[in-house]
């Protein structure tokens, strides 16, 4: 998903001649700072705005869902018509699962844990990934070699393999171990990216200039270089959030994740396949749609951010 879609043809086809035109235009825009420019570009990205709107709904669900539609494990409809539960017409809006729980209440309550897992995983992964990548890329030499060989190793082991084994052996159905497992296994790709950015950024003039006035290594690495690497880092951070939400869903679907009484979108999906033959499509459909919509929205947002934060992007 690396090329910018759905744009008018002209924007990306600037010929040699119009470079001068673009340069003139840049001069006029000089008065805006970097963030204002980024915001201007972001606002023009229609899909990113759609993403923000969907995410706003999901965040609303995560914050207020459990308050407005509280989940009570004892609040069950017991007059079930059969193993597939009520369909959405018999029990609006999303029907019920086989135990008589409202699928809507599950979705509304599951947003909180799913979003929490997504964001905290991202925070852990970004912290480690940026630290490792920055140290490797900035200092180079044997430090770089050691760290990157380790990253290579982790990346050559199937990710899902380690995650599932760790979740099963060390997760214990608890939230914190699960988040730690996700976070501690999600950073290598980001570290590789940050290292590549640092390798090119540390050769640039502004680093030399900072060195010339006696700025220390750590300060250069994190105060001078890091802000210049922020765009790609933010974009992959959004992807980590999306991946963690999907991952939690799969792990919980397999019953290796959260305990049954902790409601997440993944837990809402668990056991939904058992009754598949009786046609209870609403049971997995709505929690899955919530995940899919959230992930689409995050991807839209990530695309918008990438275009907005790309320092080479032209107006």
């Amino acid at each position: 998903m690396s090329d910018q879609p759905l744009r008018t043809p002209a924007t990306s086809r600037v010929t040699a001649l119009t470079d001068t035109a673009a340069a003139d235009y840049e001069v006029a825009l000089e008065s805006l700072n970097q963030w204002q420019l980024a915001w201007r570009r972001f606002r023009r990205h229609r899909l990113a705005l759609v993403g923000v709107a969907i995410l706003a709904v999901m965040v609303f669900l995560a914050v207020f869902g459990p308050i407005i539609w509280p989940y009570d494990p004892l609040d069950l409809r017991r007059d079930l018509p059969g193993p597939q539960g009520f369909d959405p017409i018999a029990m609006p809006p999303f029907g019920s699962d086989g135990a008589g729980r409202s699928v809507f209440v599950l979705v509304a309550n599951g947003a909180r844990l799913s979003m929490l897992i997504g964001t905290t995983t991202m925070l852990i992964a970004v912290t480690i990934g940026v630290l490792v990548g920055a140290v490797a890329g900035f200092f180079g030499g044997w430090v770089d070699n050691l760290l990157m060989r380790f990253v290579d190793l982790v990346l050559s082991i199937p990710f899902l393999f380690i995650v599932l084994v760790a979740a099963r052996f060390f997760g214990g159905g608890e939230l914190v171990p699960l988040i730690l497992i996700f976070g501690l296994l999600s950073w290598p790709g980001l570290a590789r990216l940050v290292r590549a950015l640092y390798l090119s950024l540390r050769e640039q003039e502004f680093v030399l200039a900072a060195r010339a006035v006696g700025v220390g290594d750590l300060r250069i690495a994190f105060r001078h270089i890091l802000p210049n690497a922020i765009g790609p880092v933010v974009v992959s951070a959004t992807l980590i959030v999306a991946n963690a939400i999907i991952l939690e869903a799969f792990v919980s679907y397999l019953n290796f994740g959260l305990k049954a009484q902790d409601i997440s979108w993944g837990n809402a999906l668990a056991r939904s396949q058992e009754r598949i033959a009786v046609g209870n499509w609403w049971w997995p459909f709505f929690p899955g749609m919530a995940i899919a919509l959230t992930v689409i929205a995050i991807n839209f947002l990530g695309d918008g951010l990438r275009d907005a934060l790309d320092p080479r992007a032209k107006e």
Binding site: P284, G288, N299
Partner: peptide, 20 residues
């Protein structure tokens, strides 16, 4: 558009829906 959609679908959920 399709790439966006399919890229965002959880694989196992896509499988479930296809079975359904």
């Amino acid at each position: 558009f399709l790439a966006y959609v399919f890229y965002s679908l959880p694989t196992f959920w896509l499988g479930l829906m296809l079975i359904f």
